[in-house]
Design a protein around this nucleic acid. Sequence first.
DNA 1: TTGACGGTTGAACAGTTGTTCAATACAACG
DNA 2: CGTTGTATTGAACAACTGTTCAACCGTCAA
Lengths: 181, 181
Amino acid sequence: MRSAEAIVTAAMGRFARDGFATPLRAIAEDAGVSAPLIVHHFGSKQGLRDAVDDHVLALVDEKLRRFETGGFAAAAALVLPLYEQGDLPRYLRRTLAEGGPASRRLLESFVTTTEKALAHLGLAEPRMTAGLLVSHSLGAILLADPIGDAVGVDLFSADGIARWAASAIGIYRGDLAPLLS
Amino acid sequence: MRSAEAIVTAAMGRFARDGFATPLRAIAEDAGVSAPLIVHHFGSKQGLRDAVDDHVLALVDEKLRRFETGGFAAAAALVLPLYEQGDLPRYLRRTLAEGGPASRRLLESFVTTTEKALAHLGLAEPRMTAGLLVSHSLGAILLADPIGDAVGVDLFSADGIARWAASAIGIYRGDLAPLLS
DNA sequence: TTGACGGTTGAACAGTTGTTCAATACAACG
DNA sequence: CGTTGTATTGAACAACTGTTCAACCGTCAA
């Protein structure tokens, strides 16, 4: 049964890096097994992908659970640890781009957790605001690389994170308010 | 030469809906031509994709040019017209998820345009702030469907857009500031 | 009319893909 | 020991893929 875990891990990495069109044989090689064994364990390639989705959702939920309480740091801290796992943000990016059911399960977790962190603010529409805030955080995950290029900063470096955070704080404090007619 | 345009249009739709792994034959059928003709015109499937990327970038640039000046409405108005084209936002979503060179060209346009709209605010880091704002806007494009599901609102309906905008204005005015330690 | 040429096609090819199948290794259990 | 079952594999298959090739069609110049 150990090989099943190795397969899921290898599949997550390959899907994240090369997309879901990655051949089963490549995943099998990474996991040190044969392609038919994957079908034997997961029924089909789609079955494997479902298993990887479950695994990723569990990973995210575990990380989210640490930030159910707490202040605004939740929104930032919610994003940063995701970067530490090399393959996780890339897999999320691909999942969200497809927009399938896994994408919906994922967002449900994020929005609900964020809504709890916003509960004591007395907002008019806490869930809508939570959705907006999640789209901000995940948008940063999805676009960190090309935006870093455009801005000319490595957003993964300490300096990049600090400046990114400073600008974010400015925005959430109202720096852009003069633009609102 | 008319068929080349039909091919690009069909390819954009297919790529947007089914991903870049869509077979050439499917695109050919949509365009009402044969698969070899696509290779004849664009050299290869990759050549076709490059042509579609160019086409999409031109579309986006044209839309962006209308909002180079103007206030905060730029950020909102920047997003909304993209929705009207059925395939465009989906194509952007797939492009951004891949993170290739097309993704970089795209973000460069967005960030530069947004930076101009922010110029007169006297921000400490206008380009970084512009990057952040772009990630907010595009994050909304990328995640509108699953977030709408999570929030329980159709973000494409008039009601959904109005409530989304109201929450966004609240955030940019500082509703979340109490959370900043 | 003849010739040339770009647009277009059906047929075919070689490579890749997910999946099936029969067979092997191997552990657990009686 | 034998046997039962699970994990695992190489070989093979049918379907699909991007691409090539020779041929056809139309137009337009000479």
